[in-house]
Every structure is written in structure tokens, then in C-alpha cells.
Amino acid sequence: MTNITPFIETRALTHIYNEGASFEKTALDNINLKIEYGECVGIIGHTGSGKSTLIQHLNALLKPTSGQVLVDGLDINADKKALKKIRERIGLVFQYPEHQLFDLTVYKDVSFGPLNMGISKEETDVRVRESLRQVGLSEEFYEKSPFELSGGQKRRAAIAGVLAMRPELLILDEPTAGLDRRGRDEILNHIKALRDEKNRQTIILVTHSMEDIARVTSRLMVMSHGKIVCDGVSAEVFDRKAELLESIGLAVPQIAELARRLREKGVGIPEGVMTSGPAAEALFKLANEKGLI
């Protein structure tokens, strides 16, 4: 493991906004992380914890104040000409789709990325169709203006706009913030599908919602005041680090919390139960075993 170069690595990554001014702010403080191909990582933390700053370093939109960001072992800030290539490999979808949707139709907007990469019209067409399918926008949306879409649909169109570039790593910044239950479910299901599809998309999901993390990601990084305070398998973090999470004001997902408390009382719910489906199953099984039903 140690001699294999990780896909993404940061070394002592530090970023200070307005360095030298009286209002300077350390947004990232000595971040060291490694992410492998095929992983699905959740980054969680409060507003201002540095998570948005961190992901913007991964595709060189922000330059480190000190430290390095390595992709396949190469420093992405070393060669300015390689920037474009890096941004093709690391796809970043920002929180607000309003910041990127601009073209007359959804179809044209999604083809913006691939065309910028210099990909042929035919290949672009294939990619646009595929990525719109992946986010669940059918052909009837192709000729619609992106501004007519609902909030959730805009978000999905924006994700498709980045997916069409076929990035090796897809970073989603708060993809569910401000959406209603249904919009949220749809997005999360599509993200999950991306993971499960044959290509096993590498994903970083930034959020402040524990429920999102519980439903989609397998690994969890917790950020607080510019530092990664916790990094591990999502289920284990929820089960074992509940107090740490609470101390920085992040609540464990309700179901995971319930399962943990039941376990403390001696009810045999297995570790790693975080969502309602498996929890119901476990309870049902227990009730059956005890002959309650």
C-alpha cells in the first residue's frame, strides 16, 4: 500500500486568506490526506470549517499558501500549462447551479465542458446524452432553458455539465443544500448510482448533512477550523466518534444515534446501521428472534 502513489494527496496543505492583513484567516491548516481511485469520500463540517477551500485546491482553482496538492504523485501547481488538464480530470460542481448555467438550452449548457476540452461534436453528443441520463434528465429537457428548471433539476443539470467532461474525480459541493425532500432524494440516488455503475466513479461529497453522508459515502472526513479532525469509515465514525462530532456541534444521523443508544441499553443492533431501511430490518429481525411478532 505504502509504495503505491495515491490518486489524490495533499501534503501540509495550508491556505491563508488575506495573508498579511489584519483580517487574515487561516482556512486550511496543515492538511494531509490521501484518496484512492474508486473511493467515495464525504467531507463534513460547519460553514467556515474550510471544506470549500479544500476542494478548490484539488483542481487548482485556489493556490496553496504553503504545501502541495498531488494528483498521481505530480504537483498540480508546478506547471501552469497542465492546469487545464487537471481541471478536466478533477470535476468540481459548485453549490449553486445558478453560477454555471448560462446557455440557451440544457443540452448546449452541458456540452460547454466537453467542447472546451476540444472534444469532437459527435463524441460530445454521446457524452451529453449519457451524463443527462445519469442525472435523470430525459430528452424532453434537452431544448429547455436551464432557467426554467426547478431547483433540483438545475442542480442535476449542473452536475451533468461536469459529468460530461468524464472527470476521474467528481467533487460535489453541497449538492443537496436548500432542496426539498424529493429533490434531495433524487440527487442522492443519482450520486449513488454513479458509484455503483461499472466505472465506480471516485467521488468527494461535501456537505453539512450527516444524513447525506450516511446514505452515500463510505469514508468520512470531519473538518473543523481548517483541520481534519477525524477520518475513517463513515459507519465507524458515527458509532465511535459520536462525542467528538457532538463537541464540534455536528449531530450524528438520527438513525445512527438511535442505534447507538439502543446498543448501549443492550439491544443487539449491529454497528454500521445508519439509515432507516437497515435499521428497520435489524429491529424486525430482533423482534422475530425474541418471538415478539
Binding site: K84, F94, F102, D103, F112, N116, M117
Partner: peptide
Amino acid sequence: MKAQAARGADFETGGLIKKAKSLIPVMVP
């Protein structure tokens, strides 16, 4: 600009017309 740069938009190279055109994806939003 960051969101569009993430989609490969290029605001720096090219002549005047190309540069002006590259601002459309910024001006509309």
C-alpha cells in the same frame, strides 16, 4: 468564473474577440 473554469473555460488566452466571447458564460449568470 471559478465554476466555469472548473468546466474548462479559459479567460486568459486568445485575442480580444475570443476573450470577450469567453465572458458570456460569466455575464449571463
